[in-house]
């Protein structure tokens, strides 16, 4: 890469190279935390922070890490950051930390983090690496928020825990779609998001 193009680094992960819908990485947590908007947003922020800072740290150390043991070094850096995030959540948002349960710990093995470290941070300067981490975290967050928005709105008739569907509608016979709260719908919704994105961007379609 002769010329580092900052706007490309930032824009690509949001659409053309989205970590979830195009690279198909980090699905595990994406699906499990999207029953409601609030945990989804907290999860998105946590992943963004971890990706950004692990990218920055690994990029700073990239010339000193022997390539044979790089995976272990990366895991240790990521795990330390995740412990920090987990302790902060435990201290300030205990209920939310309980709701996210094991999925905070699973950020360590989130393929987005490892994937960006391997593909970008090991070969680039710290500032672009930091930006790349933030952008990929944001690309991940967008999908999380879309899926959580649909699931919470249709599943419980609320957004951020506040009722948004008026009582009058329920009186007319409308009822919440309970299956939206179950795990399978997360899979199907992501399938639909991919479908919409790929019919808009023809170059992403598989042969």
């Amino acid at each position: 890469m002769a010329q580092t193009n900052y706007s490309d680094i930032f824009k690509n992960p949001l659409s053309l190279n989205n970590p979830i819908t195009v690279q198909v990485l980090g699905i595990c947590s994406a699906l499990a935390v999207t029953v409601e908007l609030q945990p989804a947003i907290v999860m998105a922020i946590s992943v963004t922070v971890v990706t950004a800072f692990s990218n920055l740290i690994i990029s700073l150390m990239r010339n000193t890490i022997p390539s044979r043991i790089r995976i272990i070094v990366q895991l240790v850096v990521v795990a330390s950051l995740v412990i920090l995030v987990d302790q902060i959540l435990k201290a300030f948002m205990y209920n939310l930390d309980k709701a996210l349960s094991v999925y905070i710990g699973l950020i360590i093995t989130n393929c987005i983090v490892m994937g960006r470290l391997e593909a970008f941070a090991l070969g680039n300067k710290p500032v672009p690496a930091l930006l790349d981490g933030i952008a990929n975290g944001a690309g991940y967050g967008i999908i999380l928020v879309i899926v959580a928005f649909v699931r919470e709105l249709l599943g419980s008739g609320s957004l951020f825990g506040f009722k948004v569907i008026p009582q009058a509608l329920y009186d007319l016979g409308y009822s919440n779609c309970g299956i939206m709260l179950n795990p399978p719908m997360a899979l199907i919704l992501i399938g639909i998001v991919i479908w919409i994105q790929r019919s808009k961007m023809k170059e992403l379609q598989e042969k």
Partner: peptide, 18 residues
């Protein structure tokens, strides 16, 4: 065409989960 590959895999997986 837009569903080929990953897209349909997600939907099939969702149906299996149901």
């Amino acid at each position: 065409a837009p569903l080929k590959g990953v897209g349909i895999a997600f939907i099939v997986c969702g149906l299996m989960a149901i």
